[in-house]
Amino acid sequence: MFSRILTSGLIAGAATGLIAALLQLWFVQPVLLHAELYESGQLAHFGAEAVSAHQDLGSFEWTRNLLSVLFTMMVYAGYGLMLVALMAVSESRGNAVTARQGLLWGLAGYLTMQLAPAFGLAPEVPGVAAADVQLRAIWWLGTAATTGLALWLVAFGKGWAAWGAAIVLILAPHLIGAPQPDSYAGPVPPELSAEFAGRALGAGAMAWALLGLLAGWFWQREGQGAPVPQAA
């Protein structure tokens, strides 16, 4: 059982990570590099003259980008392991997991690990003003944990007690509120910041849909030989 979880989770995660890294390098990284020109002071927003929105972002940095690929694969391998571990528990309770089901699992993972935390702490472009990083990390983790638990209750809980608890868990971190900076001091134009947040969330949605599909598919495939529940 452990090797089935490990194999499906790691393969689905690493493959997704590779695709996610390419999405990131293609769509997100240019916005990030552009923002860094403002963060480092090379460009100044609201200076004496208008600044062109088209800048030379330099050549491809191999070391930096290969590290990004490596770490993206690690992040998604981690997500893959967590997702498949939960799939295994769910299946042992009588819920078949297939690639199609996996898509729903991926959506739930995306809501848990990206969209819910982003509702309070939008993906940060370099240079934004933000509250203390420890506090944000705690809020981020707490939000992911409560959202994930809530979605489990929505999917597998029975009755209004479970669903009511899910609603409370989903809303609680946002009613408490994410740590916010005391003042706004970010040098990056709002256009870039918004583009960055949109791109990061969009790339994440694509990656999570793929991760769910692949995780469900590998999970079912790795289980062949052992009796596996069939989805109609």
């Binding site: 990030l32 990004s68 770490f71 990206q114 935390p117 993906p123 990390a137």
Partner: peptide, 8 residues
């Protein structure tokens, strides 16, 4: 870069 792009 990954942390920024993944929303951490």
């Amino acid at each position: 870069d990954v942390r920024h792009a993944t929303g951490f």
